[in-house]
């Protein structure tokens, strides 16, 4: 475990020493503050549109951070040749994969924490309430969704050599799942065989990231989700995370490092 956390530590340092997070955070804050300053029919209590815009920016930023940070990890190690001294030490390839995963995931978690604190402050400034448990549910679900994204991107970075192509493919897949994943089975009904079977199989195979999008619930102040469903969703995410990481270990096992 110490090796995994040593590798993760370097990834976390990389995130907070690069400008990406700060740029995205500042853009989010600026856009939200500008939107908050707009006078809408002299009613300062209007809050939900602001929550929606803020959460949309948080989601976009978190996906950008997760995908771009993860996509460059292994390719950068290869390109800079730091993979060689690393693997020449008593560090196994699975440890490296898991270390990179935990590093990216924890780094995304830290970024999310900052974003959600800002979101909470912004919402509280308008609504004068702190539904902390609701925000906690949303943030934890969001974080686990990012776990799936990070694991998927890590696997992609071993399959596609160029970080840019991997990032683009991951963005398309993740965007596709978030937008139509829930409806793939309905889409399949209008198709002919064998396409129908393929789309149906896809529906049951893909990780349903839309489970983790609780934005509508917290924007519109819906009651808390029962914790048992949250736990089940987190287990579902964990299963996919491990599946992708095992896939990554399998691909990386025999891959030449130089």
């Amino acid at each position: 475990m110490k090796n995994i956390f040593a590798v993760a530590g370097v990834v976390i340092k990389e995130l907070y020493r690069r400008k990406d997070f700060y740029v995205l955070f500042i853009i989010t804050v600026l856009i939200c503050l500008v939107m908050a300053s707009v006078n809408i029919f002299n009613d300062p209590k209007i809050a939900r549109y602001l929550k929606e815009i803020c959460l949309l920016l948080v989601w976009i930023s978190s996906l950008v951070i997760a995908i771009t940070t993860t996509a460059r990890q292994i390719p950068a190690e290869r390109e800079n040749r730091t993979l060689l001294p690393l693997l020449a030490k008593p560090l196994t390839r699975p440890q490296l994969i898991f270390g990179k995963f935990f590093g990216c995931w924890f780094a995304c978690g830290l970024a999310l924490l900052c974003f959600y604190i800002f979101f909470g402050a912004l919402a509280a400034a308008r609504e004068h309430q702190w539904p902390l448990l609701d925000y906690f549910q949303a943030a934890v679900m969001h974080w686990f969704m990012l776990g799936i994204v990070v694991a998927m991107t890590l696997l992609g970075s071993l399959v596609f050599a160029a970080p840019s192509s991997n990032s683009t493919i991951c963005f398309v897949i993740i965007g596709g799942i978030l937008f139509v994943g829930r409806h793939l089975d309905q889409v399949a009904t209008s198709m002919h065989e064998p396409l129908r079977a393929i789309v149906n199989a896809l529906y049951f195979t893909i990780p349903h990231l839309e489970f983790y999008d609780l934005r509508d619930l917290i924007i519109h102040n819906w009651p808390l989700i029962e914790w048992k469903y949250i736990v089940l969703a987190l287990l579902y995410a964990t299963a996919y995370i491990f599946a992708f990481l095992l896939g990554a270990c399998l691909v990386f096992r025999r891959k030449p490092v130089n």
Binding site: V10, E14, T82, L84, P85
Partner: peptide, 10 residues
């Protein structure tokens, strides 16, 4: 190794 560019942010 030959010609390695170590983590420049460290």
């Amino acid at each position: 190794p030959e010609l390695t560019y170590y983590y420049k942010f460290l």
